[in-house]
């Protein structure tokens, strides 16, 4: 009988001559002074065409309302069971000119049409930011699912200023990601883009056309 593919492949690999595994040579990712992290983050994120707004932690829902109003956003997807989701719902309740809030509170199968076609924007939190590359770290949860940062044309991400770290390497190591990886972990650096046609940049080919980062001042 023929051995199964797994057995056969592993047997061939084991039969090959073995070299010693080399030691990893040193590699030092960049380090920034704490006061420079936001500047670096902003420069990089803006290079990716993300919008960066520094906002007051106490009043960000009001600021966001005016930002979204200028973009003509009418329906905003939010995560009602998160703290920022509750803040948003509380602050916008009863405000006539506030966008309509759409809660992502059921499985995707039950609200696919709304997600794909209805929501003009979504608001999510972030785990942090990476100064080196101008990236957001998203760690989707049952309360704040994966598609929020992907399907609506505008993605609004809340980022605590103190959560901006130097590099991916430092963050992953210091926070022990390897021992607790979620179903899906994302780095997001700007809106969706493509250069497949004559290396000409075009935005929003599949994901959000705009990425708005609200950097929250520390309390």
């Amino acid at each position: 009988m023929m051995p199964d593919a797994r057995t056969a492949i592993l047997a061939r690999l084991r039969a090959a001559p073995r070299g010693a595994a080399p030691e990893l040579p040193p590699w030092t990712p960049p380090v920034y002074a704490p006061e420079d992290r936001l500047t670096r983050f902003r420069t990089m994120m803006e290079a990716w065409r993300g919008e960066v707004h520094e906002v007051d932690s106490a009043t960000w829902p009001d600021r966001l309302r005016s930002i979204l109003h200028n973009k003509g956003v009418r329906t905003v997807l939010h995560a009602p069971a998160t703290e920022h989701g509750r803040r948003l719902a509380g602050a916008w309740a009863g405000q006539a000119e506030a966008p309509r809030l759409l809660a992502y509170d059921r499985p995707v199968e039950a609200m696919k049409d709304d997600l794909v076609h209805e929501a003009d924007a979504a608001v999510t939190g972030t785990l942090g930011g990476i100064a080196e590359t101008g990236s957001l770290i998203l760690w989707p949860t049952p309360e704040e699912p994966r598609l929020m940062s992907l399907l609506p044309p505008v993605h609004v991400a809340l980022l605590a200023r103190s959560a901006i770290r130097d590099t991916l390497a430092a963050t992953a190591a210091e926070e022990g990601w390897a021992g607790r990886m979620p179903t899906n972990l994302l780095l997001v650096s700007g809106p969706s883009k493509t250069a497949d046609i004559e290396q000409t940049l075009a935005f929003g080919v599949h994901g959000p056309k705009e990425l708005v980062v609200l950097v929250l001042s520390d309390l």
């Binding site: 499985p107 049952p142 179903t183 899906n184 997001v188 650096s189 700007g190």
Partner: peptide, 19 residues
Amino acid sequence: AVTTYVNMISGPRRDGEKD
């Protein structure tokens, strides 16, 4: 310096997750 998305997948939908 980085692509727009770095997507790290460590499993299918878990209990309670919506997508």
